[in-house]
């Protein structure tokens, strides 16, 4: 599904990713851990196509296609979803407006007509219930006045509505209490299927107790320096990253 080869990327003239390789097959869950500033968010943003990141070498193939040639909105329509570490507030653009525009953009690309507002409304409300977001909040501005936990649940709501095939969740678990963590995990698990893949960027083992990864990677100094199974995450929790960085 996703093949990253020798990826080099810069932010503002500073090289952050230095020859990163990663391969993800359909249905797999990959956890990416690593010290602060290692480049985890940079990797997520480069996959999603955010402006401001220059790829200087290497390639990313998504289902065999050259992902780097596509605009971010096209990547999203093709099935990539990035749950942001810091979701932005957009006063004046309601959650509902965003969701409707996002769904219709996908339909347009497929040559389908716009979604019927009432059906869509009912469907969104149903998803909102799953992540315990009050339907009333849907008519508010995107993340406007939302608490940190609400913002993260809202990211999951968007994901449930948009039904991506590659979910990249950048520290969606950070700052959540146990109840919210459970809600977020349930949302991720609800979408898991043999066709869908998941990338969990996290610092904490507790998310991985709810959403069990097939692979755990350590990103440090701009590369994957270690890969393993779920047991690697437990090892990291005990020992930290020092022993790997020194290696």
């Amino acid at each position: 599904m996703l093949d990253i080869t020798n990826l080099h990327a810069r932010v503002e003239e500073k090289e952050i990713l230095k020859g990163l390789n990663l391969s993800i097959r359909p249905g797999e869950v990959h956890a990416i851990m690593g010290p602060n500033g290692a480049g985890k968010s940079t990797l997520s943003n480069v996959i999603a196509g955010r402006e401001g990141y220059q790829v200087t070498d290497g390639s990313i193939l998504f289902n065999g296609r050259d992902l780097l040639a596509l605009d971010p909105e096209v990547r999203a329509c093709e099935g990539i979803f990035l749950g942001f570490q810091y979701p932005v507030e957009i006063p004046g653009v309601s959650n509902m407006t965003l969701l409707k525009a996002a769904v219709n953009a996908r339909r347009k690309l497929k040559g389908e007509s716009e979604i019927a507002p009432n059906d869509f409304l009912a469907w969104v409300r149903e998803q909102a219930k799953k992540v315990k977001i009050d339907p009333k909040m849907l008519s508010r501005g995107v993340n406007e006045g939302f608490s940190g936990g609400e913002k993260k649940r809202n990211e999951i709501l968007q994901m449930l509505v948009l039904q991506p095939t590659l979910m990249i969740l950048d520290e969606t678990d950070s700052g959540l209490d146990i109840d919210a963590l459970k809600i977020v995990s349930d949302g991720i698990n609800a979408l898991r299927s043999p066709e869908r893949s998941t990338v969990l960027v996290t610092h904490y083992q507790r998310l991985l107790d709810y959403v069990q990864p097939d692979f755990v990677h350590v990103l440090a100094r701009g590369r994957i320096v270690r890969s393993g199974g779920p047991e690697l995450a437990k090892e990291l929790e005990e020992k930290g990253y020092g022993w790997l960085e020194a290696a």
Partner: peptide, 29 residues
């Protein structure tokens, strides 16, 4: 707001439409 624009695009909304939504948001008040 470039960050808001990037956020909308990351959800699949074409740039021109994302801009129009943000302009409307500004004019809405």
């Amino acid at each position: 707001d470039a960050v808001a624009l990037a956020y909308l695009r990351s959800r699949g909304i074409p740039q021109a439409e994302a801009r129009a939504l943000l302009l409307r948001a500004f004019a809405t008040e």
